[in-house]
Measured scan of single mutants.
Amino acid sequence: KRPMNAFMVWAQAARRKLADQYPHLHNAELSKTLGKLWRLLSESEKRPFVEEAERLRVQHKKDHPDYK
């Protein structure tokens, strides 16, 4: 399984919050909304998630050196 990218790291927590706020939204609508919200974030707001995704990528490479 591939490591999560920055969006997926962020969306993991954001999806729970959004689903709690809008329990009537279908998963497809949640995903579209999350995409729009992510694009509205500034680079500095995204930075911690980009850094975490990079950490996960490096760890994955270490754990699975033959993964392509």
Rank of each mutant, 00 (worst) to 15 (best):
K61G: 11
P48H: 12
R2F: 02
W10C: 01
R55K: 12
Q21S: 07
W10H: 01
A19N: 07
Q12I: 06
R55Y: 03
R2L: 01
H64I: 10
K36H: 04
F49M: 09
S42E: 01
Q21W: 13
F7D: 00
S42Q: 06
K1W: 03
V50Q: 11
D63S: 08
A28S: 11
V50M: 07
D63A: 06
M4I: 06
W10K: 05
P3M: 07
F7G: 00
D20F: 05
K1L: 02
Q12G: 05
L56S: 14
W38Y: 01
A53V: 07
L18P: 03
F49R: 14
L41Q: 03
L56D: 15
R39I: 01
G35C: 05
K46N: 02
R2E: 03
W10E: 00
W10A: 03
K61Y: 07
R16G: 06
L34N: 00
H24N: 12
A53G: 11
P3I: 04
F7N: 00
E29T: 13
N5F: 01
V58E: 11
H60M: 07
D66G: 12
A53F: 04
R57V: 07
N5M: 00
L56R: 09
Y67L: 12
P48E: 06
D20M: 11
M4Q: 08
R2N: 14
L18R: 00
R16V: 08
A13V: 09
W38Q: 00
D63L: 06
L37E: 09
T33G: 07
Q59D: 07
R57C: 08
R16H: 06
D66F: 05
R39W: 02
Q12Y: 01
K17S: 06
Q59K: 08
V58Q: 12
P48K: 05
A13D: 15
K61V: 09
V9L: 13
R39V: 02
N27P: 15
F49D: 15
K17Q: 09
N27G: 14
K68L: 15
Q12V: 05
M8G: 11
K68G: 02
L25P: 01
D63K: 07
F49I: 07
F49H: 13
D66H: 06
T33I: 12
E51V: 04
L56G: 13
A14H: 11
Y67G: 14
R15M: 06
P65R: 07
Y67T: 13
A11S: 05
D63I: 01
S31P: 09
L18G: 00
K46T: 07
H64T: 09
K1S: 04
K1D: 04
P65K: 03
E45L: 15
E54N: 12
H24E: 07
N5G: 08
E54S: 09
R57Y: 04
K17C: 13
